[in-house]
Amino acid sequence: MKLVNRKSRLKGSLIFDEFPTIYFTGMDALLSTSRSDRVSCTLAVHYDQLKKDYGAEQADVIVNIVGNVISGQAMGDTAKKLSENFGKILQHRQSTSINSSDTSISRSSQLDYAIPAAKISDLSSGDFVGIVADNPDQMITLKMSHSEIQNGHESIASEEESYKDIPIVDNVTYSDLIENYSSIKADIERLLNEEFQRIVARNQDVGNASDTNDNIVNMDSSENQLLPGVNEY
């Protein structure tokens, strides 16, 4: 990532699917600087899982620092967090009261969540809510949206019917599996025995060399005792 996220580099895109399953230190710094370095980052996350693996503080930083958020159906704290991030808008409400003698209509305006958590929890398959960021020279009037992916289900079904099964290269029997397992096990035992013998031989060589050095020292000391005029200290 450090090689990609630099000045004067080609445009790039980093896509992390199931992002909480891997841990990156400094992801908040990457998200903060990647846009100016012409690098787009896409994180596919579950907020609850991100909070569990990265911690609540780091998860909030990562979620709050991104500019574009697209979400499908979500429950619990994830839906609540997304609803808070989407913000509130001024909403007009009208209520009608009818009794036996009169009918009254009251209108009011108040700030409320643009996309309530209950709405996010109730999204159907293919429905998405989101908010996008813009540039000063490319202003976007409608940033928040509630959209539906229009899939050509008939085209997809006809395409799936034309799929062909993967051809069978070879039939593997249970005896083949046992034979392969036994071969691998024998290779591991052979490698362990060879390594063990090598370690034992090396230790013996080290021990023999140590004994030889001791003998040389003893011989030198005995020769010094035989030399005349040598004082012992």
Rank of each mutant, 00 (worst) to 15 (best):
A29R: 14
M144A: 09
D102W: 03
S32E: 13
E195C: 04
V217W: 09
Q197D: 14
G207Q: 14
V69D: 01
G55I: 04
L10P: 08
L123P: 00
K81R: 12
I178Y: 08
N151H: 15
I105V: 13
T173S: 05
A74S: 07
M144N: 07
N213H: 08
L123R: 01
V169E: 13
F19P: 00
V4L: 13
P116G: 02
D205V: 05
S83Y: 01
S83R: 01
A44I: 12
S182L: 05
F86D: 00
E57V: 06
Y23N: 15
D53M: 13
G72M: 03
I22Y: 11
F19G: 00
E194F: 07
D220C: 12
N5L: 07
D187N: 08
A56Q: 09
T212D: 07
N151A: 15
A114M: 06
F196E: 15
I89G: 14
G126I: 01
P228M: 03
Y174G: 13
K52D: 08
L90R: 11
N135G: 06
D220I: 12
N203V: 02
L3T: 11
S97N: 09
E179G: 12
S222C: 12
S36L: 12
E18P: 01
S109D: 06
L50A: 00
V217A: 14
E232A: 12
K2M: 10
Q204V: 09
G229S: 05
S158H: 07
I62R: 00
K11M: 10
L192G: 09
S222M: 15
Q225R: 12
I89S: 14
K80I: 08
Y163H: 11
S106L: 08
G229V: 05
